[in-house]
Design a protein around this nucleic acid. Sequence first.
DNA 1: TGAGGCAGCCAC
DNA 2: AAACGTGGCTGCCTCA
Length: 642
Amino acid sequence: MINHSFPVLGQPIPVRVPQTVEDFQEFQRYVLDRANAGERVAYDTETTGLDTYSSGFRIRTAQFGTPNEAWVLQVEKGSDLQRLASWALRTLPALSMQNRNFDMLASDRHIPGITLEELAPKTLDTYIYSHLADPRRRDQGGVGNGLKDASAHYVDPSAPDTQGGLIEEFHKIGYTKDTGWPHIDIDNPLYLSYAGGDVILTSRLLPKVEARVRELGINPALPAFEHAVGFVCALIERRGMRIDRTYTAQLSSDLREEATHWAAEAARYGVANINSTRQVSEALLGMGEKIPERTAGGAVQVNSTVLKRLADVDKDWEPIESRTPNPLAMAILRSKRASKWRTSYAEAMLRTADENDRVHPKIGALAARTARMSISDPPFQQLPSGKWEVRHAVRADDGCRMISVDYSSVEPRVMAALSGDERMTAAILRGDDLHNLTAASVYGPGFTPGQRKVAKVVQLGVAYGGGAKTIAAQTGLTLAAAQSAVKGYKRTYPQLARYIRDLQRQVVRDGYTLRTPSGRRLVFDRDAAYASFNGEIQSTARDIFAQGLLEIHARGLTPHVLLPVHDEIIADATDNEAEEVGREIGEAMTMTLRGIPLGTDPDVGGASWGSLYMKKAEVMTANDEWYAAHPDEARKAEEARK
DNA sequence: TGAGGCAGCCAC
DNA sequence: AAACGTGGCTGCCTCA
């Protein structure tokens, strides 16, 4: 037995690293004793990285621990240790993990005999309780929901920083924070004691955060709800979605060419590096352009709004024809967009795809301070939606078509439901266009299309907690005109206006916190009570969506689901079933909130995600091209049709 | 040279 | 009185 220790509250807690058959038997006794006592045991893994599905990924150690003892199994040393970890995971009746989806999915894939389905029902996630207690990140003034921050707050402020502390060890062997994980010696004492420390901290953290959630009077149903939502997201993450590697590689190379071409164009105007905002602004000013905008740091701002104005195009890149377009501004816009699309999306897909050409974007089921989900590696919540080319890289499974089901204008509906505004509610129940109603009320029945547009911007501005100034900037209206539009909006929906005012007062009285209709606790910055209405809408919409996801699961439709995207489910099904599956998912998501119906809008596309973003003619061409390049698929699709 | 802040850009 | 929200990620730049 190799014995190390980890300090908690001034006490060294033993960390045991079994080496011999006798040591393994001692570990087995530890596990059986805990199992007989029904005691919950913390579990964690140390791995080569976070890319669970890439070819080089390995689990290096598997740790089990209780508040006063930790065991580190060096599973990469041999299959006997891996079997021991597998046996322990199956034998223990109750587990805890910090951010359980990562360890559950890594163990599901890399430890024989272990499945996500078996682990999830007996595992509690300390992250979920931390997030329910304080949903803010550390840089937002919160406790922080990582193991280090949460343990420092709830368990022991002086406990070592187990991730940070290893960086020095990595440097000693010539690696960095990001590259050291696969290379650090498996017998490194600090590595092992910190690995043990993580489970000791997790097991001590769980009762603290559970108690904190109770103390705060948070809806006692939320922990189980979040564990259920997280499990469904783990199933979706494990399935992943297929990319067309050939298409994606071609897309990447086309984008590289485009970026290079326009960068060369920019170089003709003296900008050697288009990503250097200083070079760009100096060159543009040198061409005689006037740029009044400044960044927060005081630099001349050359963001896309500024560049599009100089290039004489609107936000959708359509020519305005109000001036002579500045060729440098246009070259920089084009080059930056191409290189962003290449590096962040195309290359990210190629880099993270597994051996079956499937990407497994990480779904943070409970992420934002409003509880909204996040998706990373690759960031599939934010692929370009104005053009289809990037999303076209993502393909439905063989013989399948892509399906998208989203909630129809969920945010205005949630606004009406929360505020109980009678006029807004009546308009929604009648099925009237809200922006037409607003425009008619503010500008009279003869309102112009432009005035309807203003009504729409005001609606969104109010939902975001914005004011007349930002609305003026967005619409080109004078400040006075924007102010009167906001006034008119508030006159149109008086109960909504009152609700927002009262909510902000309430939030200030309650120490900048708010309880949502789900019983979730939101916390706001002291200078941003104005954000409370948006927080409540966004959070409520997220919980509606999560509820919809659980209903999809209850109806057995999860195997079709590829991705959740805020208020939209991406799914696939065979040619024959797609319409029906889309309808079923839509029905599962449909519900009412305080009498307001929350309907859905299913859409069935072709073989690629991008097809949902094409015009009809483009779908036909793209499908034909793809089937021409994949004759096997064409045959399969033909058979499926029969 | 690595880490982290800032600016910028993609989405809903 | 007024206050536009939530994320992920890349590249530049500064600091240690």
